[in-house]
Design a protein around this nucleic acid. Structure first.
Length: 911
RNA sequence: GCCGGAGUGGCGGAAUCGGCAGACGCAGCGGACUUAAACUCCGCGGCCCGCAAGGGCAUCCGGGUUCGAAUCCCGGCUCCGGCACCA
């Protein structure tokens, strides 16, 4: 915490006591107590040791004397400067946003809140400090910026650490949070800590429960039996904790199995179509593509096949399939049901029963990796019944096979081996009929096929399809569906890959799902006035891997809110992605005790203007958040239907080995050493300078010295403009041929051209090129150090612009140098971070001449200097007057003279 | 396999409405300062030939469009991320 106040290392009991107070309008686990700071430092002068004296004494000194300059001017010492300014900013409450009364336009800047793993590594700096630069940049542009932070405090690591070390997840988590608050402070980040949110705090998670109950009322939450991912060592896993193509546990690497459990779901699929609509939000294209693919909308048709009557089956049962290729219906030569299909038992012929049962059992037991491997040979068994193909009346065999998934479409398919690779492989293995029904021009409809023909080109046509022969595939498919629809045997249908969100977790350290199971009343929601359902203080893990809530009688036993009889609580907790699906709304009113959000605040501040975070959350957090926003809107809680107007995905800093940073890999980079050696400003700047922010990359501190040198040069320029370097033979002299007036115009022009270009870089998150431009400006200025124009009006203006532009990225040194200049000028101190962004002087950026590159046949051969307002004819004349050009032309006349881009370049085309 | 993104000096990376390739920085080399070293400062710096002036070759590879291509088009290769029998 930046604010003073007691640090919280509370044991769990303390937090419960605090919760009691909190619910009565007091305070939560958030550390500050009370929020408004009292012990402010009354120091008027923010910089105790200005270097004014030294600077003045150096004015007008000789070269020989300045040989000592390097040792005489005060050194740039970030470790002395940075904590002082951090404390000062905190004292002044510079970053506490007035959410209600500030007249300036609002700007909500959000960065994904961290998991409190206990240590800020360089990756956290990479995520946070550029966002902070952006926050500061926006403030200088007159916005009332809200830049909050909090902690994603529920989750497995805390629980596992507690099991391993015998502590409590709460203690582990809160200790880590306290450490991280302290570490965050060293970045100089301008978070508004007074709005901090900690999701493991009952004052937060009670509203998870409240929202869940609203969703339940709205039919957006429901309970169903489903197969969940199960790791033999670690128990249940969230979907995102199952990694890679081979479906392994993220912690132990064991193959993940499925287990059938009664689970709670949120109806994300209800919003499938709306989630595909990204109009009105400015998000990176790759994220939109990933979400679109994840939702996986498929247009097609559902078609009913009747079960054929035989000695066992009465016939007439309908098997419904989903297909995207109704045009291939005449080629459907068998059917396949998922092993879990509900009609399997009923349709299986007694002679086949043993084999079918064995196959179903085996499919149940198999790990998902085995079952879903596309490499594996197709397996399946015939169930001994037949179905009737509705278009041609053929009796076709019915199989079960695990390549058909029960959770997608209807869990049954019509198999068209001629035009589907999977069906083709299955037909080859079981010797089934393969009939071509779609052919490209010139293809023999009767020829045997060696591979499935799956292309879907515009010039193909139907064959072997009765009266539909000759139609194009698209028209034929539509015609077949329309024909069957007349008798109710088919209908157009859209199917999605997206599933409903399974939120139940068999874990202790999460939000208890607020329902009660009563023998008489069934599922009974916990009444609002009995929220929150608190986690019990004592945890008895015993390393069983089972959820300890299952063994906590005090937690389990509860009176049914309806009938009063003894009932049983739900022991599953919520997926922690619930916590992160609405936290930015809570930031706006973190203490609100009578509801999750303050509608007046959300109306004023959301959607979030700019969200930044990693692309790894593309189809999890970012999709859930969109769902939550829409669901909350439909419950009448907020007006938004999208949470984040603009999204930027920063890249990820990898370990030096190119792998993801993690404690287990031992490749975590600790920024503390770099900070103590170079200062936070240098580390901030270096992370921004490394490359494009969305790129990330392996960590290497090589080159940080260059950024440090740059800041030192800025330091020198401000404190010692008249100093001369003995190593520079031209020190103190203007560039050859340049008058003082020209020199003054040159630095001013450089400053204003930089000022013209830098904002576009900030706006587009191109911090690397932004810093390069500031370096160029500093280099330009350095060339004039010690000359007669140093320290003049233009010089001072340039320094002012340089510091202002640098302030968002390197806030401490900018503030320090700014304050020293004010002190030297005898002016009252105001923070550089409260300055208005300067205006470009258009007159300063125009130049009287320009240099035009000259090509001959596309090769650069010469350059010519012309007046900047020269006409095309004048440019052409100047080019042809050049001796070098004449020599290259060697008497030839150019066939064509291209004056490109309004005279940006000249190209002479000859022969 | 499908879907996205990217390939530029020794290194990180600039330049993408087609118009001076290599900004800025690192490493390197030369010099100044210093008793010396470090720090700092100045300069050089894609590759090849040449004492130089200059010339040739260069943005993953091969074609194409254009006065002109890192940039646009076609075909390939490599790397990174996502998905994983979704009918």
């Amino acid at each position: 915490m930046i604010r003073s106040g007691p640090l919280i290392y509370s044991p769990f009991r303390g937090a419960i006591a605090q919760l009691e107070e909190h619910l009565h309008g007091m305070q939560g686990v958030r550390g500050s107590s009370p929020r408004s700071s009292t012990n402010r430092d009354e120091t008027a002068n923010p910089h105790p040791s200005p270097a004014r004296r030294g600077v003045n004494r150096l004015r007008g000194t000789t070269v020989t004397e300045t040989a000592d300059t390097r040792t005489r001017i005060e050194r740039y010492d970030p470790t002395a400067i940075e904590p002082r300014w951090q404390a000062r900013w905190a004292e002044l409450g510079l970053h506490e946003t007035d959410l209600e009364h500030d007249p300036r336009p609002n700007y909500y800047l959000l960065t994904m809140y961290p998991y409190p793993s206990g240590d800020l590594h360089i990756g956290h700096w990479y995520i946070v400090t550029p966002s902070d630069a952006l926050a500061r940049y926006r403030r200088m542009h007159g916005y009332n910026v809200f830049f909050p932070i909090g902690f994603d405090a529920f989750g497995l690591p805390a629980e596992n650490a507690a099991i391993k070390n015998g502590g409590h997840p709460f203690t582990w988590t809160m200790t880590n949070i306290e450490t991280m608050r302290r570490q965050f402070r060293t970045m100089g980040a301008t978070f508004d800590w007074t709005k901090e949110v900690v999701t493991a705090d009952p004052s937060y998670y009670r509203w998870n429960q409240w929202l869940f109950l609203r969703f339940l009322e709205a039919g957006l939450a429901y309970r169903a039996t489903s197969a969940v991912d199960w790791c033999p060592n670690d128990g249940t896993l969230a979907r995102e904790q199952v990694e890679g193509a081979d479906r392994r546990c993220w912690r132990c690497g064991a193959p993940v199995e499925k287990r059938d459990l009664a689970q709670w779901f949120l109806r994300t699929t209800a919003y499938a179509d709306e989630l595909l609509d990204f109009s009105g939000i400015d998000w990176p294209e790759p994220v939109k593509v990933m979400q679109t693919n994840w939702i996986g909308r498929s247009e097609g048709a559902e078609i009913d096949f009747e079960v054929a009557p035989d000695s066992v089956q009465p016939g007439g049962d309908r098997l419904r399939v989903f297909t995207t290729r109704p045009d291939t219906l005449f080629g459907a030569t068998f059917m396949v049901l998922a092993p879990e299909h509900p009609l399997v038992a009923q349709l299986t012929h007694p002679d086949r029963r043993d084999e079918v049962t064995a196959y179903v059992e085996r499919a149940r037991r198999e790990t998902e990796i085995e079952r879903l491997s596309t490499e594996r040979e197709k397996t399946g068994v015939a169930i001994g019944a037949k179905a009737i193909n509705p278009v041609n009346g053929e009796r076709i065999p019915i199989f079960i096979a695990d390549y058909v998934l029960s959770g997608y479409g209807t869990g049954a398919i019509m198999a068209v081996p001629a035009h589907d690779e999977r069906d083709f492989a299955f037909a080859m293995k079981f010797g089934l009929t393969i009939r071509r029904v779609v052919a490209a021009p010139g293809v023999d409809a009767a020829a045997p096929m060696e591979d499935a023909y799956v292309a879907h080109a515009s010039d193909e046509h139907l064959v072997n399809s009765g009266r539909f022969d000759g139609l194009s595939a698209d028209a034929g498919g539509a015609a077949i569906v329309a024909w069957l629809a007349e008798t109710g045997r088919a209908e157009p249908k859209v199917t999605y890959r997206l599933r409903d969100w399974l939120i139940s977790r068999q874990r202790y350290w999460g939000t208890p799902i607020p329902v009660i199971y009563c023998e008489r009343d069934g599922i009974v929601p916990v009444p609002d006035d009995q929220l929150p359902v608190l986690l019990p203080e004592t945890v008895d893990d015993a390393g069983s891997g089972d959820n300890p809530l299952n063994h906590d009688e005090a937690f389990l036993r509860v009176d049914c809110p309806r009938c009063g009889r003894t009932a049983r609580r739900e022991t599953d907790t919520m997926d922690t992605f619930i916590d992160s699906s609405w936290y930015w709304y809570r930031y706006l009113s973190p203490d609100k005790a009578d509801g999750p959000i303050d509608r007046a605040m959300t109306d004023r501040w959301t959607p979030v203007d700019q969200y930044t975070g990693g692309a790894e959350h593309a189809v999890m957090h970012l999709l859930y958040s969109r769902f939550f926003t829409k669901a909350m809107a439909d419950c009448g809680l907020i007006a938004d239907r999208e949470p984040f107007k603009r999204l930027f995905n920063q890249g990820q800093i990898l370990g030096a080995d190119g792998e993801r940073m993690s404690k287990s890999r031992g490749n975590v980079q600790d920024p503390d050493e770099l900070v103590s050696r170079y200062g936070a400003d240098t580390v901030r700047l270096f992370l921004m300078f490394m490359g494009p922010w969305d790129q990330g990359g392996p960590w290497s501190p090589t080159g940080i010295g260059g950024v440090y040198r740059f800041l030192n040069r800025v330091w020198t320029l401000v404190l010692d403009p008249h100093g001369r370097e003995p190593g520079d033979p031209e020190a103190g002299m203007l560039p050859a041929g340049q008058s003082p007036a020209e020199a003054r115009a040159a630095i001013r022009s450089a400053a204003h051209r930089t000022l013209r270009d830098v904002p576009a870089d900030y706006e587009a998150f191109r911090f690397n090129t932004m810093i390069a431009k500031l370096m160029e400006l500093a280099n330009t200025l350095f060339r004039y150090r010690g000359t007669e124009i140093a320290g003049g009006d233009e010089w001072n203006e340039t320094i002012r612009l340089l510091l202002t532009m640098l302030a968002p990225a390197a806030p401490h040194i900018s503030e320090e140098l700014w304050s020293r200049r004010l002190a030297e000028a005898g002016e009252a101190w105001t923070s550089i971070h409260a300055q208005a962004w300067p205006e470009v002087d258009p007159a300063a950026v125009v130049e009287s001449t320009r240099e035009i590159p000259v090509q001959v046949n596309g090769k650069l051969r010469d350059k010519v200097v012309v007046a900047s307002d020269a006409t095309d004819a004048e440019i052409q004349a100047a080019v042809l007057a050049r001796q070098r050009i004449a020599a290259i032309l060697d008497g030839r006349t150019p066939d064509r003279i291209v004056l490109a881009g309004g005279g940006k370049l000249v190209n002479l085309v000859v022969r």
